[in-house]
Design a binder for these strands. Structure first.
Lengths: 376, 376
DNA sequence: TTGAAAGCGCTAACAC
DNA sequence: GTGTTAGCGCTTTCAA
């Protein structure tokens, strides 16, 4: 990321003179015992009380109009709604949360928003939640377990449930935190909790099978963070698939799940003498390909590379990356559904969802070369 | 995005038997007039009252320990803190918000999380906010102005301020909404509101200048959404720069700010007879390059392409993309600072920050060919 | 169907 | 320095 530090900043104090928040005109039918409360910014906050007064009903009637409309006379309801509309009344969710214990919000915590793997998941989760009248707040942990724990704690009181995507926390920590708020874990199996998994083991088997089919007999696996459950699952499946196919699997890692992680691993990959590489994710695969390019090693001529995720740059890089596609959008929806089940019908059991993955063969894999690539 | 629809789902009802939330052991020193309230999920919610009782002080003392520690006797404070720790007490932010009018949260609304342009901005905003003891909640509008407005409204009561990134709302709508909550607008100039801009006009001039220097005399501009302020700014600057350089600028658009937008525009670009193209963003530029590749048009041999943003895939695509780098991370920090100024010192004036952009020349631009590219 | 009243967890004057 | 008291805006019994 190129950053340009020069900054021009001007502060316009002339705006000091302008009343930024024009007062809202309000008519009140009844004697105004209390004037509408004024918010922190000087704007007028319309409360349930203002509406009640104006309509000439009790606050509880107004409340019901919004939280249990069927319990209120259609005519009254109409009047309340009209006045509410006119006044621009919107229920204060924080206040509602205080009494009901429900906020109508869900939290979504991801390891790294800038990993293109996550955005489709985030989008689909938000869309599904909106359909079910919830909002999703997203936060990023920077791959730091401590930030992750702090975020969970902060979210705990402000959302009804939490989606934990690719958590880096220990299983123990997750168990401990799970008593504070219901949550669904994505990309990690935690006993006793609802989970949404993508079948990376199957993906790893396909990928290794693909390389075996191309004649590769020595395959390097670039693992991800040691705290990544998916990484372990991939490793186990890849080892199994390689050995049952009569090939050697060299495990190299852990690596940061980033382009840089792939770049840094390039030398070791070459040293390993492998002719095929399976990377924990596309970012690593892409970094590796770039580094190999610099080193003058031909992909797939000398070395075949397979990634995981099928992020956009994987289709764009040259050679186009062979990779295991992950059903991220489906996972986002499934995770929201699982979470809302937990939230709306607590105690009725946890669920486990496993989504299939699929190998997408592109141009970064080819038959193994006769000789191993030049290690220098 | 490849989606795999097959799903295996199992519900584990045996967990029904397990007490998912072990009751927290609590000792209470005083007669327990009220037992600790039980949360929606059956877990024990520790409130300020429980702590007060256990320490043997009034709730307000406990409250002060957290919100104004200097006003409380160090010894008392220590005891309160110890008990709070022991009980696992954490202040309920929703309740605090109700009295103070402050939530400690900021909202960040972006047009499209899956556009790689945004994540660095989001990350830096979150980091800066965390430094200043705020949390950032992110939401995505799907480029839909109605969703944007709804999100602003929802956020309004739950955050202290809002960062609007690349809003698609009309200026009028923004003005109207700005009375409900303080906000800072990024990538758009709105009079009377605090803004953080990236100097895209300067970027456009550099880009056009670069193409002119390579001998291009007919340049196509692929604009973005018509509601994008940046797009208009780029257009104006590009037109000016081209005409003052004695070249023709063909404006083609509006285009969706996506890869597909670029793909769809390819035919028109070829028809325009331009030898150089400036795209509203890298996604469009990348889509265009891919489509041109399919059509057998050489980039940069027959057509030079320049993008905006410098997202990761721009460095990865072949040919590597010449593009205008945007200071997204700096913008995120600056926007948070501007917003917190508004939030913490309301009425002290709005600010405008303009950040410089920089042309990064890579391999997608070259001297103009002698003849125009074959239009068929 | 509606009103009255209590209270969610916390803060903020104001007393003491 | 600490206790008292009165709410913040809303929901939710319970009566009427």
């Amino acid at each position: 990321m190129m950053e340009v530090p020069r900054v021009r900043q001007e502060v316009f104090s002339e705006y000091l003179c302008l009343p930024r928040k024009p007062a809202l005109t309000m008519r009140q039918t009844f004697a105004s015992v209390s004037s509408p409360t004024s918010g922190r910014d000087g704007s007028v906050a319309v409360t349930i009380r203002d509406v009640a007064k104006m309509v000439g009903v009790h606050v509880s009637t107004v409340s019901r109009t919004f939280s249990a409309p069927h319990l209120v006379n259609p005519e009254t309801r109409t009047r309340v709604l009209a006045v509410a509309e006119e006044l621009g009344y919107r229920p204060n969710r924080a206040a509602r949360a205080l009494t009901t214990g429900r906020t109508g919000n869900l939290g979504l915590i991801v390891a790294d928003i800038s990993n293109p793997f996550f955005p489709p998941l985030i989008k689909s989760a938000q869309a599904r939640a909106r359909e079910r009248d919830y909002h999703v707040f997203v936060a990023d942990t920077d791959e730091d377990p401590r930030v992750e724990e702090e975020l969970i704690r902060t979210f705990a009181k402000q959302v009804d449930g939490l989606l934990l995507c690719s958590p880096r926390l220990s299983g123990r920590a997750i168990d401990r935190l799970s008593v504070e708020i219901p949550f669904v874990v994505v990309n990690r199996l935690v006993k006793g909790l609802s989970t949404v998994l993508m079948d990376v083991a199957q993906g790893a088997r396909s990928a290794v099978g693909h390389l075996l089919g191309l004649g590769h007999r020595r395959i390097a696996l670039l693992t991800g963070p040691s705290s990544s459950w998916n990484s372990s699952a991939i490793e186990a499946a890849a080892i199994e698939a390689a050995s049952s196919g009569g090939a050697e699997l060299v495990v190299l890692g852990p690596n940061p799940p980033t382009e840089q992680g792939g770049e840094l691993a390039a030398a070791e990959v070459l040293r390993s003498g492998a002719t095929g590489v399976l990377a924990y994710n596309d970012l690593i695969a892409i970094g590796l390909i770039e580094a190999l390019d610099e080193l003058g090693v031909a992909v797939p001529g000398q070395l075949s590379v397979v990634g995981f995720d099928d992020i956009m740059p994987a289709r764009v890089i040259s050679p186009k990356l062979t990779t295991v596609a992950m059903p991220t959008a489906t996972a986002g929806r499934a995770a929201v559904d699982a979470l809302l089940h937990l939230v709306e019908a607590p105690g009725t059991g946890t669920s486990r969802t496993t989504l299939d993955t699929a190998l997408v063969v592109r141009a970064s894999t080819a038959p193994a070369p006769a000789a191993v690539p030049n290690p220098r």
